[in-house]
Nucleic acid binder design. Sequence first.
DNA 1: GTGCATGCAAAGGCTTTGCATACCA
DNA 2: TGGTATGCAAAGCCTTTGCATGCAC
Lengths: 152, 152
Amino acid sequence: MKILTKDKGREYEVFSHYLKEKDLKLTAQRELILRTFLSHRGHISAEELYQRAKEKLAHVGFATVYRTLKHMTQCGLARELDFGNGRIQYEPDFNREHHDHMICTKCDTYIEFLNPQIEELQEQVSRKHGFKITFHRMQLYGLCQKCQKSGK
Amino acid sequence: MKILTKDKGREYEVFSHYLKEKDLKLTAQRELILRTFLSHRGHISAEELYQRAKEKLAHVGFATVYRTLKHMTQCGLARELDFGNGRIQYEPDFNREHHDHMICTKCDTYIEFLNPQIEELQEQVSRKHGFKITFHRMQLYGLCQKCQKSGK
DNA sequence: GTGCATGCAAAGGCTTTGCATACCA
DNA sequence: TGGTATGCAAAGCCTTTGCATGCAC
């Protein structure tokens, strides 16, 4: 069963290309999970993605969601986020510029940001120690504007 | 059974003060776990702390280590580190200046660093978004000097 | 003596894996 | 048709919790 149509966006090309390259198969489930993932704005947990996918196709398994997320991460369509709450979140990562996060510890909303000066300083610091960065995680936890006000 | 002697360091005072304040008891296990934790240089996982404590006192339980770590974290003697490998590490945090980490993904060694400029920029960025930081996590992953050389 | 602490084992939460069946290519 | 994918359930891994007993105060 092939559901993929053309012009769904580059992500679908990337995915099918990745699958072909690895001798993996394009299944209805994989396509559905990708579509569901992409249609969700912002990050999502495996559990939530499973729920949303299941609404569209009853027989989708938990394991398949996890396995597909691994593939999507592998080919650069998804990025794992670990906000230290014991469950990994995934966010779309295709053609997206690197960014970091501020997370409100009260309402769980988050703000994405990119600060080139910080990035540059990270490089400087690591060079000073002879360290070669391959990736980094930076998360600022605290209260968003709304929660600061409502808290008082 | 009281094992605590004077002059073991301020950490012991902090711990016993915290316990007293919370109507908690100073037990041989708690003291042993704290001592073992402090004697270990650098961070340590609950599992490893359990093993090391057990060497000194056969009857130490897993749960007690976890429970004691919570207390030590609570009173500022320990700090939880999550390097995204599924197990929390704890590092001594008494009278220590805040710092971040570079972690070698090959040999697992790490370098602590503090960059005031980055800290300041984090504040600036968050102010710009009306966000109030309470704490942050910043980890640079990559290769340490040694592993860069050995890798070639 | 009272009430918290302990150790053991069981349970929890998230993620991965094994296996027989289903399905893509 | 052959080999991968799927769904289910079970297992893994780390951490927490329940409970009867033990111990600090």
